[in-house]
Design a protein around this nucleic acid. Sequence first.
DNA 1: ATGAAAGCGCTAACAA
DNA 2: TTGTTAGCGCTTTCAT
Lengths: 336, 336
Amino acid sequence: MKTTIYDIAKAAGVSIATVSKVINGTGRISTETRERVNEIMQEMDYQPSVVASALTGKSTFTIGLLIPDLANPLYAEIARTVEDRGRELGFNLVMCSTDNKPRRENDYITFLRQKRVDGIIISTGISDEEGIGNLVRQKIPVAVVTREMASLEADSVKVDDFLGGYLAASHLTGLGHRHIAVLTEDLSLATSRERVRGYRYALNEAGIDADKQFVVESVSSVEAGRKHALEMLRSDRSPTAVFASNDLLAIGVVQAAKELRLSIPWDLSVIGFDNTLLAGIVDPPLTTVAQPIAAMGRQVMDLIIQEVRGEKKTKRRIVLKPELIVRQSTTFPRKV
Amino acid sequence: MKTTIYDIAKAAGVSIATVSKVINGTGRISTETRERVNEIMQEMDYQPSVVASALTGKSTFTIGLLIPDLANPLYAEIARTVEDRGRELGFNLVMCSTDNKPRRENDYITFLRQKRVDGIIISTGISDEEGIGNLVRQKIPVAVVTREMASLEADSVKVDDFLGGYLAASHLTGLGHRHIAVLTEDLSLATSRERVRGYRYALNEAGIDADKQFVVESVSSVEAGRKHALEMLRSDRSPTAVFASNDLLAIGVVQAAKELRLSIPWDLSVIGFDNTLLAGIVDPPLTTVAQPIAAMGRQVMDLIIQEVRGEKKTKRRIVLKPELIVRQSTTFPRKV
DNA sequence: ATGAAAGCGCTAACAA
DNA sequence: TTGTTAGCGCTTTCAT
């Protein structure tokens, strides 16, 4: 049998209450007994059961993280920083990759509720805000990262997507481009819409008619990006630059360009979004709009833990600034 | 208050035992009451507490996954497939990135034990087999993936690293290379040693003196790989090909070569290991030895769940075959 | 400074 | 078919 608090109590010749107190550092215990008990726990390799403890109303010290896909570097990096901050604070992470499938998202949420996780961090795109609203109603702390849940009272941490789109597009217009396509993730995501809105704003500012540009919606993957880019680039009104709403898509564009023997950046400028590991690795290195991933991860975890600890009554909405990272995939247009 | 089994029982006018039975599908219950109870649980949005249930001796339906770093695509991909299989089987994953730091590994293990996870899957490198031996002694199911724990009685799933190293090196010797360096991860990892051993075997077979080649040990990152490659390539006995023991390092080599204006594959052939997402994205696309990541992830999860369910008494050791993926980073040596 | 005992939400005999 | 009840390992008054 696993050793329990009873075993320790017996071995130490004290009551379980006393053991409990030394474990939690509560109540008043003589240094003497404290030391003895600690020693014995050590010797017997005793691990207090957080499941029993949770049953009495304490935390489970577990947070659920809902993301679209762990295999996508952006989310892997977010998960990593969230996890790190959690560890520092004594919380573990249970990973939930939903592939943006509402069905899967709901299954995971049910799971997490049954496990009585202390809180849930959401980074998935399409969420039926219905199901999540339930969480909030049940007083389960919810925090959103990378997105925003319009109708929801929840903490959120995200980048200023509008500004990001603006930064990307105005970098391009500044370089002299007038024919700038955009390849974006699902426009049902507020995030994507904002980035496109920023793009339009920049084009407007430069006196370019945004309505005459390609705006192509795509599933978020290198392969899908490549396919769509191929079409775009083969068209007779092929752009001189493309703004992809994330690095995966941008890489797809790069690959398509290579296939068509277009040299980047000379024949085509490409700019991405996110600044994941990938951006530095493609050839040429990708100019992209960086999300402050580490800061975002750390901050959501901080927010939700405050919530869990009841240290906070009001919901907070944190918006961080994106940063343009200029590498080698953009330059002025060759042909005017 | 959260609704409990008592609330349901009262609302349905039955005992909690009955409710418990319909939840678990145990015992004999009339269809009538079953339906009524189910309906009420539905209405009240009741979620049975797995923490209470776990306290009575049932599973927590949680598995811990120890990996070096979630931000490394190899491990992210492994985690993803493990997670997927877990979901299918009704288990959640708690993520533990150790950065191969024994301290952190131990902290996580303590955490996981306190949470009474049903099992632990290990994919971290340097493990003090001591701490893990403890787990096994406590009858906590342990499975190892990607590695092997020599002294340990645990399930394991890995690729044949020796064969992988051999495949890589003989591809190179077959191309005519006679001067083949290897850039490897920490040789204290059995995995790395095996890959190098396979490499040596292939060189031997080709009549090349392996002892005269560069064998450089490196931390596993693009940057570290780049640095070491730079040194190698600047030396007067610069190789015509390098075998990197993982894709990250291989990419570092590619970057170094570019810096030195060496064209790949013409001036230098590079071969990696793992076949992560990255391999297809670098330029040129990387020839590499593929690990069957999805299969490995699925199989460890299957093994450990069998263990958890007590369906298996003997430990299993599964060794999968690696596969050489030839892309464009290797060719015959220009200068003989 | 320490202990007795009730209770957390559920499961599993055992009774009825 | 359904209900009673004794735990599961721990926390937390409330006494002592």
